[in-house]
Design a protein around this nucleic acid. Structure first.
Length: 301
DNA sequence: CCCCAGGCACCTC
DNA sequence: GAGGTGCATGGG
């Protein structure tokens, strides 16, 4: 067992673990108290866990934020992985300066200071967002937990047994009925067929070689992936910070705050909102707006 | 009973 | 390419 502490004072910008992991970007971590996505408890001292693979070995990573630092425990040296997956080196000040000077954008950045985009493993993100279609955040997370327990590999950690996220091969071997039994509904065949594609050599990470809009188009070859899900994979896994996924919440936000960006189809509306939100880091701003307006009781005009 | 959730595949035209 | 329809499940 290894452990470490990463002083928050060494980061370029503030950091907030809970909003980063519970803002609907990633469904690949779970809280030690089991109270995922139930809100409250802001202020830290919750351990979050996930798994990773190093040289075909499965490892658990546990992380907890205190007032002064990010503490971690793991089978491996987790610091570089945390730095990467939680984008600890992002300069939020610069990102915020590139965002538009709107009341609603200011309020969102102010409400969740320190929230980062995540950068999660491509296949796991791909499956997570196939499951996300017409589904609530808490249930998407529950589905990923169910997939781990049904098809992942057991990993011992701190005297408990956890499960790795299933590999493409492990998921491809699941039957459609087994996936339906986990309440995946009509997404079950999408997950199975996509897992088969990845197992057989089509790598979602290959999208990285392409410019943004071509990368989005490339990802739609996977079954169950349309433009919106493709944008989520680009934004939350492949480092395309300009990607702006247009889901039901963002469409409400467009109606209310950016009606001039509505262009009647996904591609053009996305392009207009991307420009409106500052271009290069538009997806960062979008993620703040999404999280803020989904929880705000009394949003400003 | 209704409506909705980080939509997509498939079908017309 | 634009526009409809069916699709699973659970919560409010």
């Amino acid at each position: 067992m290894q452990s470490g502490q990463l002083p928050l004072s060494e980061l370029a910008s503030p950091f907030d673990l809970q909003s980063t992991l519970e803002s609907g970007q990633s469904y690949l971590w779970w809280r030690a108290d089991g109270n995922d996505y139930e809100g409250g408890l802001y202020g830290g001292n919750n351990w979050y866990r996930t798994t990773t693979e190093v040289d075909d070995e499965h490892a658990v990573i546990a992380v907890c934020q205190t007032d002064e630092c990010l503490k971690w425990r793991s089978h491996i040296d987790a610091e570089p992985i945390l730095r990467d997956r939680l984008r600890l080196d992002d300069d939020l000040t610069a990102i915020r300066q590139g965002a538009p000077d709107d009341r609603i954008v200011e309020a969102a950045f102010e409400a969740y200071q320190g929230m980062r985009l995540v950068q999660e493993p491509p296949f796991q993100t791909l499956v997570s967002f196939i499951c996300s279609a017409q589904m609530r955040v808490a249930r998407i997370h529950g589905m990923q937990q169910a997939l781990r327990e049904a098809f992942g590999t057991p990993v011992e950690f701190d005297g408990e047994t956890f499960f790795s996220y299933p590999t493409p091969g492990q998921l491809a071997e699941a039957t459609e009925q087994e996936l339906r039994d986990l309440s995946l509904g009509y997404r079950a065949p999408y997950v199975k067929r996509t897992a088969e594609m990845v197992r057989d050599g089509t790598d979602p990470a290959d999208a990285r070689e392409r410019p943004y809009e071509q990368a989005r188009e490339h990802l739609t070859q996977f079954v169950g992936v349309g433009q919106k899900v493709a944008d989520c994979i680009l934004l939350f896994s492949l480092g395309y910070t300009e990607a702006v996924p247009l889901d039901t919440w963002i469409r409400k936000i467009i109606d209310r705050y950016f009606p001039d960006c509505e262009r009647g189809n996904y591609e053009e509306t996305s392009r207009a909102l991307r420009a409106r939100l500052g271009g290069e880091y538009a997806g960062y701003t979008q993620t703040y707006l999404f999280h803020y307006l989904r929880h705000a009781e009394d949003p400003p005009e």
